[in-house]
Write a protein that binds this DNA or RNA. Structure first.
Lengths: 213, 213
DNA sequence: TAGATTGTTAATCGATTAACAATC
DNA sequence: TAGATTGTTAATCGATTAACAATC
């Protein structure tokens, strides 16, 4: 990470996309790629590719381009995907279950260590080798397992209190599926929101916009 | 929708957030709000609030502010939330199940009419009053029910073929949870992507960035 | 060497913020 | 009327694109 300071959010949010396309290319045993070709398959400009990558270092070589595998590895490091932060997931409803079983957390920078719920009917269920624990044991589990991040899949009404508990237990990183505005309450928390209904409303707007033309 | 042409994506993506906060205020029986106050609770600038709203019309009144309920209704119309586009969901795995049962589609512009899967073990399952159908009947169902949008919760490998079928059946609106790049193949499709792993990778980056300071 | 392609600076474009006259 | 607050124009800021000299 030779440069890597004060990178804008616009750039950061493009990194996973570079990572995906480079993984794809690497899987196809493509060895080198120019900013022009990469830009073409990603439907962006070559300028943007070079600008983005140069935020972190000069990974290319004039006259040659970029080594696919090397560049992919650089981005893996920049994102920190092999650090595997110990995490808990809170809320084992439909959404929590889907997130727990659907995501490949290792390889995405996290390690799901525990799942918690307060519903006695789901406590004891298993996802892989993780057992759903009772909500009450949350704090002790966090301490014992050095948990540093939490994935929130609980209903909106429950979020405020749960976030308070997690924050007091030392957690500052939240992957938040609810509409509770965590950054409004805890300024030093790192929050990534997944607002599914916002996404759907945007889709609705765009559909109507198209019709009205 | 008095003005409403060529609105930038930045503005569009903020609309659901206005909608949420206004719904909240309306639920608390707040009758009027100034751009200043609204900006404060949303953690944005008053200028932005006024600029954004004025893309669509002059909903406020000098010296008074905005009527909460009226403004909320305007945004409902701008987004088209009460049009209820008939939609199908494809893929009833963990993610599809969560999306089908977790989302309140009516009120978000859509009406989930059918769920499809090719796994004989889940065909026949129910979510509310919707039965999971066999994949084979997809085209006839789309025609009979005037389906105009599809929610894709299928594994990456299955997406290309499924999108082709849906596109041929006339569907141009996709809510896409996979990493298949639909706009790469179908230029006239409206696509809203939900890339959960991109979101998680971004969270990972931000965590490491914080640590490295 | 000549051709290709980067890294980087400069130019452009768009989005956000500030300011203020219009007006309720 | 006076105070408040909008709608809108102008200024600023940031992000994207274009251009090109450096260099492999």
């Amino acid at each position: 990470m030779s440069k890597g300071n004060n990178i804008s959010m616009s750039v950061i949010r493009r990194l996973p996309r570079y990572y995906r396309f480079l993984s794809e290319l690497d899987g196809q045993n493509v060895e080198r790629i120019s900013s022009n070709k990469l830009a073409e398959i990603m439907h962006i400009t070559a300028s943007q590719v070079r600008q983005d990558l140069n935020c972190f270092g000069g990974f290319g070589q004039q006259g040659y381009g970029y080594g696919v595998k090397a560049l992919k590895d650089e981005i893996t490091n920049i994102l920190g995907l092999n650090l595997n932060h110990p995490a808990v997931l809170i809320g084992f409803g439909n959404l929590g279950k889907a997130v727990a079983s659907h995501m490949n957390f290792n390889g995405l920078g996290f390690d799901l260590k525990g799942i918690f719920d307060k519903d006695i009917n789901v406590i004891g269920s298993k996802v892989g080798n993780i057992i759903v624990n009772c909500d009450i044991d949350l704090e002790s589990f966090i301490e014992q397992n050095n948990i540093d991040s939490a994935f929130l899949c609980i209903p909106k009404q429950a979020v405020k209190e749960t976030v308070a508990r997690l924050y007091n237990a030392g957690i500052r990183t939240f992957w938040n599926f609810s509409h509770f505005d965590i950054t409004g309450t805890y300024e030093d928390a790192i929050v990534e929101n997944v607002h599914l209904s916002d996404s759907l409303m945007t889709l609705c707007y765009r559909m109507n916009e198209k019709i009205n033309k």
